[in-house]
Structures are given as C-alpha cells and as structure tokens.
Design a binder for these strands. Structure first.
Lengths: 123, 123
DNA sequence: GGAATGCATCGACGTCTGTCGATGTCTCTC
DNA sequence: GAGAGACATCGACAGACGTCGATGCATTCC
C-alpha cells in the first residue's frame, strides 16, 4: 500500500481526507430532471423501440410494425410505448386505424447533452 | 385527418401499414448490453454521484465526502456506489481507511456513443 | 348495423429497487 | 490489545416495474 502514508498524514492533521470537489457538478434539480429520461431508456425493449423508430423512414413507425419486432404481447409493447411517450421521448399521432410514434429529437438531445458537457465526463 | 386516405389505400391493397424500417437499428444484444449502464445512471442520486466524482480533482472522490453531499444514510450511498461499480461505471480503490471511487471514462463513452451514433438519433 | 382490426387500458402476478437501522469488517491510533 | 473511525453487508419493508390475459374503445370494411 504505497499511498497509505498520505492518508495517515491528512488524518493526523485533521484535514479532510481528500481534496475538495472542484469543477461544477450536476445540481439536484438537474439530476431529478434528467433521471426520468434515462429511466425511460434504461430498458432493452424500450431502447430497441426508440432505435427502431429512429431508424425508420421519417424517424417514425407504426405500432403494428413495432409489435412484430418483439416476442412480446401487444399489451406489453403498448405499455413501453406509453412509458416513452410519457417521458417525452416519443410523439404520438393517430392516422386512421394506425398509430405512429416518432422520436422527439429535442428529448434525445437533452440526454446526449448530459454526456457531451463536462458535467459527467472528466476534463 | 388528411392522411387517412393513404392508410386506407395501403390497407385495401394488403400492404404493410407503413414503410419498412430503414437504416440500422440497434440489435437485441446491443440493447441488453447498454441498458444496464443506463439503468445504473437512471437514478437522481447515482447521477449526482457520478457527476460529483467526475467534477472532483482527478475525477475521483472518497466516500466520506460523497456521504456529506446527500441527506441519505451511509448505507444507502454505499449501495448506490456499489450499483455504479457493478455496472462498470466506477473504479474502486482503497487507500488506508478511505475508499476512493473514480469514473471509468470508457464506460461513460460507451453510453455517450449511444447518442452520438446514428443508432438513436435520426439522420 | 355487424364484424373485424389496431391499439389502449385494466387487473393481477412475481420480481426488482431504494431506503433504512443494525451489524460486520478492516484500518489506524493510542 | 482496546478503542475509534470508514465503509460494506445484512435483513426488512414499501413501492415501482415488466409482463401477461382479458377487456374496452375507435375505426374501417362488408
């Protein structure tokens, strides 16, 4: 343990055990605002749903096609789409019998911004 | 509903209700690989933890300081750090009495890559 | 109008999650 | 070696989550 002596020194002097936080960390409000977006995306099925929609022509897809892409019940897919829609990640539009979901680039950009800025990635 | 006739037409002809998926969507394996990372980050506390660590000097921080940043039990913070560590987002190093957690840039980059590539954002 | 189709909603279920208090383990001090 | 401090682990609990079958609601076709 080559660095033990450093810890001993700082402890003996009564100082903080480590250097104070520098840079600007995320605020609590910011974290509570972005976390729901990540939570909505933090599921393999929903991740693929968004990916499938984004990869479709016009960045939109109808539910019937999305259903066929999974070995899950239609009710389950509908549930996942609702979660993504409620989180603001997808737009919903009904056309006749079919319902189309489209990605909201702004919402995805908000998440992407998380990892682009210095708030998460070290300088 | 100006686009209803289109739907009717395609339905009457027995075609798919919408254009086939274009571009390249995420694979199931890819989704199941990235989802755990997002799930680990999809919590306000863990998001702030990573942010605090990333914003610290050397992109690392000791648990004692992290504990002070939250109004939560030490056991709860320890739990969240374990989740982040198990997901591969944080490195753990013990130095004397204290434990330091550091961000793993590669793991964060993997998540960032999700939103940079065309797999999620429309072209 | 009746039947059929696409999608949402409901109710139920097992499982996972976030939080806590209590306890254990390790390291250092004296 | 006894004590103190830093952190992890355990057990427990309420709440959220993913999935399903069944049902309901529009819309379209005949």
């Amino acid at each position: 343990m080559p660095t033990t002596e450093i810890a001993m020194t700082t402890r003996a002097t009564g100082l903080e055990c480590c250097t104070p936080l520098t840079g600007t960390a995320m605020s609590t409000e910011q974290a509570e605002q972005v976390a729901p977006l990540l939570k909505a995306l933090a599921d393999p099925v929903r991740l693929r749903l968004v990916s499938l929609i984004a990869a479709s022509a016009g960045a939109e897809a109808c539910v019937c096609d999305l259903n066929d892409a999974f070995e899950l019940t239609q009710a389950t897919i509908s549930h996942h789409l609702k979660v993504l829609h409620s989180a603001g990640l997808l737009d919903r539009e009904k056309r006749g019998v079919w319902v189309y979901y489209a990605v909201r680039p702004a919402a995805l950009a908000a998440v992407a911004n998380l990892f682009d800025t210095a708030s998460l990635t070290p300088a």
